[in-house]
């Protein structure tokens, strides 16, 4: 389907997203595991650090952000691994359609599958961690702007390591340093809001990072995939 050169760009993107979503719902682990990881990891913090609500509210936004970031990193495996193993990644690279948009569509569907459920649950867990109500909206807006950037950056790391047999921890070493700006601005938004400061400037910066990531990262992903598939 993707290999038909006469297909319009819009329908190619729709077809790619549909294929990815269909595949994801046929192996529900890809959808449920990142979410379960998020839920369990967030639960560990009050258990390990103490359930005192004053302490929890201080770390709440950091905990939500860090666990989201780790969940995205662990979920990256499902973005290219199966396609690499069954050869459909090669088909993707050989497709006459622009690879740039195919990769964006793949990452977008990955975001829908792996990040959107976390985003929906995040406010509840933020409330459970005693995050004051003023911090909930900036947390969600930040996650909305930041998680696609994280997916795009993670896809670069995954594309670089998909040809290696054991890439789990290597992926973490490669992409966690690149995740730092998103984490810093995302948690910064919440702290600004809790300090009654405007946070729209930070949100705009996160939006700028997202635009930059959308423009540049598919090029890096494509270059990395070509290296891995060789």
């Amino acid at each position: 389907m993707m290999n038909n050169p006469r297909m319009g760009l819009g329908s190619v993107i729709v077809a790619t997203v549909r294929r990815e979503l269909l595949l994801a719902f046929r192996s529900p682990g890809d959808v449920i595991n990142p979410l379960m990881f998020f839920i369990i990891a967030v639960t560990l913090f009050p258990l390990g650090g103490g359930a005192d609500s004053e302490f929890l509210s201080g770390i709440a936004s950091g905990v939500i952000w860090v666990t989201t970031l780790l969940a995205i990193m662990f979920s990256m495996e499902s973005l290219f691994r199966a396609d690499y193993e069954d050869g459909s990644l090669e088909q993707l690279l050989m497709s006459p359609q622009p690879l740039y948009f195919l990769l964006l569509a793949k990452v977008l569907s990955h975001w829908l599958v792996a990040c959107l459920p976390i985003l929906i649950l995040a406010p509840f867990f933020a409330a459970m961690l005693a995050l004051p109500a003023a911090g909930i909206l900036p947390l969600i807006l930040g996650l909305l702007a930041g998680t696609p950037t994280l997916c795009l950056l993670g896809a670069i790391g995954m594309a670089l390591t998909v040809g290696l047999s054991r890439s789990g921890l290597l992926l973490a070493v490669l992409i966690l340093p690149l995740y730092i700006p998103v984490l810093v601005f995302g948690t910064g938004m919440v702290s600004a809001a809790l300090g009654s400061l405007p946070y729209t400037g930070l949100l705009a910066l996160m939006g700028a990072m997202l635009v930059l990531a959308i423009c540049l990262s598919p090029l890096a992903i494509a270059a990395a995939l070509r290296i891995s598939v060789n």
């Binding site: 950056l153 670069i156 670089l160 490669l174 690149l178 930059l212 890096a220 990395a224 290296i227 891995s228």
Partner: peptide, 12 residues
């Protein structure tokens, strides 16, 4: 692969 990662690091 390292060349790609180095360049990504420059942006970051």
């Amino acid at each position: 692969a390292c060349a790609v990662l180095s360049l990504v690091g420059v942006v970051n």
